[in-house]
Design a protein around this nucleic acid. Structure first.
Lengths: 223, 223
DNA sequence: TAAAAAAATTGATAAATATCAAAAAATTAG
DNA sequence: CTAATTTTTTGATATTTATCAATTTTTTTA
């Protein structure tokens, strides 16, 4: 089942081949172009998403057109839009940063598997618990850290969780990086500039290289 | 089973009397005094909590001694400390604002019920989904609203979700109200003062009365 | 109940961050 | 490939919010 990556974090690892088949109808593997919306906040839908390929941003559309990017999702990530077993209304928007292929899984099918496969329910709960903990720590850093600390965190997140290289080409604009770090694009640019002057990073357009990760970690712990 | 309130939000509503009995050993109903810690962040424990009586604060202990109160929990509320099916490490601290009685339920027992009771797993997931959505909206208001909007939100939360009266005696200090609203205690006091001058609220010590709820809602929507 | 400690309030000032405007650079469209 | 549009960057300034210090009020303790 090509949609499902083999890794420990994958919630589908507890399912048998038959059960996976039941979940995913091949025809529901959908492609999205860059900037297309995959899930739209405040609309109703009954599917959950498993990313097969590409990168997407998960964000909340706040008031006054201000977005808050909560996290990025890529290959193998599973996400429900906040409506799972809870009225089907999506609580955030997901849109493609690169071309995306993903599976849309009907959420009703999930619960049908619970009785035959106890572990699957546990995996789903674990997934939600992790998401919860992630949101808590994100909330703390967005509210208790100064701007340089938040930008450092964003850069480390991109390096460690998304691109897994010290040098990477971001698929996000400066505005989007700002929306991840809870500040204006102007402030983000100025802080990147500071980091460059301190030789912590190098940038050239959308290419970012982390030169001095140790310092970046220190800054992210809030200097 | 006295611990479980009859209300729609209760995750235990799907359990039979026998199943409830299995979950809760009467001897595990514990009492806590004001200011006592019920769950401590970063420690390991395998129980989840169902509140029987009293009021407690759920908060994250950030860096530099700065706390962020995420929410309050009272009668009938169920909460796991962020370690559920996820390593048992607690991701936040819960402490009593008033004398508290609660049940400590061993988390291992939860999963044992999944196979016999499909709906119970769904209820747990719904609970987590809701918590998730709550955190998302809290995150947005903490980051995108000015201080008066955040204080207005805190006051409305206390009125609508906790005390259910327009006039109430808060069990939180001014510092704790500030920790709920992500600001310093001085700022909180000043904003309460502004609200008093605009005749939106009246206060006398820890007694707060909401006089003009409409205005408060307007402010919370960010003026 | 008086003294001590803690919490709440007020004022003055400093620091962090946003806004607005303009210029430079990069992308996109024709 | 060039003009038009969008994005990024820089600078000057305004706003929001925190900090520090002092005072008043409330609560706790002996």
């Amino acid at each position: 089942m090509t949609c499902f990556v083999e890794n420990e974090a994958n919630i589908f690892k507890s399912l048998s081949a038959d059960e996976l088949h039941y979940l995913v109808d091949k025809k529901q593997q959908i492609k999205y172009n860059v900037r297309e919306t995959i899930i739209k906040q405040n609309t109703s839908s009954t599917f959950v998403i498993c990313m097969r390929n590409g990168l997407a941003k998960v964000f909340i559309e706040g008031e006054k057109g201000k977005n808050l990017i909560v996290k990025l999702i890529g290959k193998g990530d599973f996400i429900s839009g906040g409506g799972l077993f809870n009225g089907n209304v999506q609580h955030f928007t997901i849109s493609a940063l690169t071309p995306v292929t993903c599976c849309l899984i009907d959420s009703g099918k999930l619960s049908n598997l619970f009785s035959e496969n106890n572990n699957f329910a546990i995996e789903l709960l674990r997934n939600h618990t992790k998401q919860n903990n992630y949101l808590l720590s994100k909330m703390v850093s967005l509210t208790q850290k100064y701007m340089p600390g938040r930008v450092a965190e964003t850069l480390l997140y991109l390096k460690n969780d998304i691109y897994k290289e010290s040098k990477f080409t971001v698929d996000l604009s400066r505005l989007e990086l700002a929306e991840m770090s809870n500040m204006t694009k102007e402030s983000l640019v100025r802080i990147l500039q500071q980091f460059k002057e301190s030789h912590i990073i190098k940038t050239q357009g959308s290419e970012i290289e982390i030169m001095d990760e140790y310092s970046l970690i220190q800054v992210s712990k809030n200097g």
